Simulated assay, not measured.
Amino acid sequence: MVAMFLYILAHHHKNRVVGFSFKRSGKTVSKYFHECLKAMIRCQKEFWKTPEPVLETSIDPRWKWFKKCLGALDGTYIRVRVREADKPRYRTRKGEIATNVLGVCSQDMQFIYVLPGWEGSTHDGRVLRDAVTRRNGLKVPNGYYYLVDAGYTNGQGFLAPFRGTRYHLNDWDDGHLPNTPEEFFNMKHSSARNVIERCFGLLKMRWAILRSPSFYDLKTQRRIIYVCCMLHNFIRKEMNIDPVENEMNNFPENHTTTNYNYINSVESSNSWTTWRQNLAEEMWNTWRANRGLG
Rank of each mutant, 00 (worst) to 15 (best):
V2L: 10
V2F: 11
V2C: 06
A3W: 07
A3E: 14
M4V: 13
F5I: 09
Y7H: 15
I8E: 01
L9V: 09
H12T: 00
H12I: 00
H12S: 14
H13C: 14
K14D: 11
N15C: 10
R16P: 01
V17S: 12
V18N: 00
V18D: 06
K23C: 12
R24S: 05
S25Q: 05
K27R: 09
S30N: 10
F33L: 13
E35Q: 11
I41E: 14
F47L: 07
K49R: 14
K49M: 12
P51Q: 06
W63Y: 14
W63L: 09
W65Y: 15
C69Y: 09
C69L: 10
T76M: 14
R83Y: 03
D86H: 12
P88H: 06
Y90P: 03
R93A: 03
T99E: 10
G103E: 05
C105E: 11
Q107Y: 02
D108E: 14
V114P: 01
V114D: 02
V114F: 01
E119W: 02
S121R: 07
T122H: 00
H123Y: 15
R126C: 08
T133N: 13
G137N: 02
L138W: 04
Y145K: 09
G151Y: 07
T153S: 06
N154T: 04
G157A: 10
G157I: 09
L159C: 10
A160C: 09
N170P: 08
H176G: 13
L177E: 14
T180M: 11
N186A: 09
M187D: 01
K188I: 00
R193F: 12
V195T: 13
I196S: 06
G201C: 04
M205S: 10
R206V: 13
W207H: 03
I209W: 05
I209C: 15
R211D: 00
L218A: 04
L218G: 00
T220V: 12
R223S: 13
I225H: 03
Y226V: 00
C229Y: 07
H232E: 02
I235S: 02
K237Y: 05
M248K: 12
E253W: 05
T256C: 09
T256L: 12
N259A: 11
Y262E: 09
S265T: 10
E267R: 13
S268D: 07
S269I: 06
N270D: 14
Q277T: 12
N278Y: 02
A280P: 03
N285K: 08
R288Q: 15
R288I: 11
G292E: 02
